[in-house]
Design a protein around this nucleic acid. Sequence first.
DNA 1: GTGAAAGCGCTAACAA
DNA 2: TTGTTAGCGCTTTCAC
Lengths: 350, 350
Amino acid sequence: MKSATHHLANPTINDIARVAEVSLATVDRVLNARPGVRESTVQKVNKAIADLGYVRDTAAANLARGRVYNFTFILPSNSNEFLVMLEAQIEQLNRRMRHERTKLSCTRVTAFDPVALAEAIKAIDASQVDGVAIFGPETPSVRDSIAHLKANGVTVVSLVSDVPSSERDYYVGLDNVAAGRTAAQLLGRFLGDTRGKIAVLTGSMLARDHLERRLGFDEVMARDFPNLQVLASLEGRDDPDLIEKLVPQAIDSSPDVIGIYSSAAGNEGLLRAFRSWKPARRPVVIAHELTPLSRAALRAGDFDAVISQDCGHLVRSAVRIMRANSDNIPINLAQERIRIDIYLKENMPH
Amino acid sequence: MKSATHHLANPTINDIARVAEVSLATVDRVLNARPGVRESTVQKVNKAIADLGYVRDTAAANLARGRVYNFTFILPSNSNEFLVMLEAQIEQLNRRMRHERTKLSCTRVTAFDPVALAEAIKAIDASQVDGVAIFGPETPSVRDSIAHLKANGVTVVSLVSDVPSSERDYYVGLDNVAAGRTAAQLLGRFLGDTRGKIAVLTGSMLARDHLERRLGFDEVMARDFPNLQVLASLEGRDDPDLIEKLVPQAIDSSPDVIGIYSSAAGNEGLLRAFRSWKPARRPVVIAHELTPLSRAALRAGDFDAVISQDCGHLVRSAVRIMRANSDNIPINLAQERIRIDIYLKENMPH
DNA sequence: GTGAAAGCGCTAACAA
DNA sequence: TTGTTAGCGCTTTCAC
């Protein structure tokens, strides 16, 4: 392929140096905002940069620097399917990116334990790590340790569940209020004009994502579906055994449950409960996260729809953002937005 | 950040050269399968590569080569919203990637015109272009010109609508049969047990994507919804004016139309028809592609759901694949799979 | 304050 | 058939 490098060729620091009448080293100092350059020289160089429309070649810069990006993911040690998938994606991306000067590691922290999480964050060595992605509850101690990390120049993103009051650079995850609204709309439309009750399964009242989903769900239910009455949340703590016990209890006490919104992890428990409990009319079920289990349930007709977020996308997005932030370059917001995926059995990936 | 490069540091061609006891140039020859190396030397080098687990640093290689990737998109000149969005994404990505040695360009060809498309493909100069992404109908002449391109070492991907019988390297687009099935399931579930007729709007019988959607739609309708009767397709040729005329005609002749599947472009015509035609009970409408118009229709309640493919993803995916193929490196299949997005007004991106 | 020169991992003349 | 060398765009000593 001819490279046809006429006047369109991108300018390099050599061009800047020539135009600004300084050396390469000086251009580099200005580019990287290093001290020890006379102000008038800085001006000259910056003018040349602007005039030529110079954009730094990050690949070449990283090559010269021998730069290696080190990113850490902090995840709940709770090992449900979603977490297993997330960790698999991290490992896979780590293998792919080892050869692109990017290393990913993973730390697990007791689920729903803010103290343990805060300690794990404090244990991060800011001199060894460029960015941290945190999936955990939002509490004051967690916020403080995030602030500490940030103060030491580490990029911080919250993952799956946001910590909006903190100084995190970015939230990588879906809009959980909107996800709850979506579940409600789907459930309501699938049920048509039928009158009845809706059971909601949640994980923990500590988890912001779970709270937000419930919020959105209730909002749309109240607004659009007066024929449906939403019951109090069943707090399953993402524990299949607990959920398996809770569900039949709740449903036996109000027999006209015609819909279930499983808004957190623990689909396994719900499905187990289904095996023993056979009502006359199967309730419409909306669950979260496309996993081997929920796929099977969709296929079998036990679940009617699944709201999901793409694990691979979450991980790639977190890494792209941490990388861009480390280099101080902008991100493509549209690309990083995590979609609220709706899956029926017809549109599941193979 | 300390780079902590102990024994984990990736091996370079220097390491290979040292271990294989040859020069850098010879390693390079073997790596790039260039001729003029004794077979026994090739073996030695390959052994060293395998032993050390060497992986080439593509960024450094591209820097040294001064390599510039040139990719061309061939699109229908029909300028509906979807095409406008697609082209905008191409332009945007081109701006982002100009500084990463990747240039994108765009050619428009009369819509639904296989001859014009085949000519446009033949007009590609294989010595100037590394990859071509084609969005157009599948005909023998198109297949032939794709074969010609491939023979000249150009990577070819089909975009949005596949040309499966050709030698294209990859299809970037969604599974249209599954998309049709999804539309049917959604429409059927939203309608509940109501009896009535369904109108289907299609673009052209030449377009493989449109045909496939209809196929999947009919399959699920026949299987799961005996209460619904699907009418013959209205061929709108993606032309809003034509569609605006067709829809009221069709609906007036069979008044019990309770659902509409708009499977192609031309939502504008459908929405215009809606403005004059006010039935007692508004039909449930499933349309394709999330665009400014369909978003507004979702919000207003004129559309009940939209099946969509992410334009940004389509373009990024096509470019990643053409790039990987030019370099002969593997792709991440999961990342490149185009999702069948379902949008309700609740889960639309802002 | 500023510049010259070596080098990151790889490629491509040109010699040998 | 093989090796030597210069250089891609950028960074980084170390001197001046």
